[in-house]
């Protein structure tokens, strides 16, 4: 599968999805006007990846800010990757947050609870 790399802008995050490394990362801000047009290619990539994953997959979020429309997409991403476990693959989710950003930490805790995935919380 082709690697999917999207450079960050002032309203969309940096996205780096690699099948070879089994590493999916999202970092920065997310407040696009139309979340679907930005995230649809990403969700499609993940759909294709799930059938092809051959090793432990790590998903990393290092977000400064996301709006509510993006918060729903982040849940969609998590609810997709959780299927990896059904195909027998291991999954790790790293949730990075600024040391003093407790709202961001709490958002991660909520996702972890809803998606039933244990997160590794990493302050930076």
């Amino acid at each position: 599968m082709e690697r999917l790399i999207i450079e960050a802008t002032d309203e969309t995050p940096n996205v780096n999805l690699s099948e070879d490394d089994a590493y999916l990362s999202f970092s920065g801000k997310s407040l696009p006007e139309d979340v679907r047009s930005f995230y649809n290619p990403i969700l499609e990539w993940i759909d294709n990846y799930i059938g092809q994953a051959r090793k432990k997959t790590t998903v990393e979020f290092k977000m400064d800010y996301f709006n509510t429309a993006s918060s729903k997409i982040i849940l969609d991403i998590l609810l997709k990757v959780v299927d990896l476990r059904e195909t027998g693959q291991e999954l790790a989710v790293k949730w990075m947050y600024k040391t003093n950003d407790l709202d961001m930490k709490e958002a991660g805790e909520e996702y972890s609870e809803i998606a039933e995935i244990e997160f590794e919380f990493i302050p930076y």
């Binding site: 979340v35 679907r36 918060s71 729903k72 909520e110 809803i114």
Partner: peptide, 21 residues
């Protein structure tokens, strides 16, 4: 949480979460 899980996007791309958030 309920709206995030069960809600769908409006025509204009809102997730119906703004006020709750």
């Amino acid at each position: 949480v309920k709206q995030m899980k069960e809600g769908s996007y409006s025509e204009k791309g809102g997730a119906g979460l703004g006020f709750l958030d």
